[in-house]
């Protein structure tokens, strides 16, 4: 039972390709079986993209392709060459945080911070699609991003705060979000 090696029919082969990440071109020579997650983290040192299961069961590895969130752990890198990819590292504008990042900091929406990059990107895609997203829209959009720390509540509050600000409103956090009732 223990002595049957996996049948390795083929050796990994390296290929070359160009990845357009956060507006920058990267020419990469990489093993053809690598997922986009692995290329981002291991070939491009963009370790802001995290991983929690590598099977599409947690949402942690979410990145944006053409603005739409996908699971980089289930994306064969080869299929995403020459395609605009956005990772959490691309969200800020220079030293200025994206309004979502700003609101996440302000509300305490990142506890351990491990699901945060994926959540931020899913939220960004949502708000670009629906600037007036309500709580239910947010819940629906984030149903594929597990968070074990926050119970999602501070995340909802942060997204709502950012959304309001992105719409140009003068929004402040609700007092009870910070102090309870």
């Amino acid at each position: 039972m223990t002595s049957e090696p996996i049948q390795i029919t083929k050796r990994p082969r390296k290929i070359r390709g160009t990845f357009l990440v956060n507006g920058e071109e990267h020419d990469v020579t990489y093993p053809s079986h690598k997922t986009l997650l692995e290329v981002l983290r291991e070939e491009l040192a963009l370790t802001g993209t995290k991983h929690g299961c590598e099977l599409g069961e947690c949402g942690t590895c979410t990145v944006l392709i053409d603005g739409e969130p996908i699971l980089s752990c289930l994306a064969l890198a080869q299929a995403y060459e020459n395609t605009p990819i956005e990772t959490v590292e691309g969200m800020a504008d220079g030293s200025d945080l994206h309004p979502l990042q700003e609101a996440f900091v302000e509300m305490g929406a990142a506890q351990c911070g491990y699901c945060t990059p994926g959540v931020l990107l899913a939220a960004k895609a949502l708000l670009e699609d629906r600037p007036a997203a309500d709580r239910q829209d947010i819940k629906d959009a984030l149903a594929g991003n597990l968070c074990r720390c926050t119970g999602y509540i501070k995340i909802y509050e942060a997204i709502e705060l950012a959304a309001a600000r992105m719409r140009g409103e003068q929004a402040e956090p609700a007092r009870e979000a910070f102090y309870g009732r």
Partner: peptide
């Protein structure tokens, strides 16, 4: 990290 076995894609 759980990884794919060696593989390579074509895009017909």
């Amino acid at each position: 990290m759980l990884r794919l076995p060696p593989c390579e894609a074509r895009f017909p």
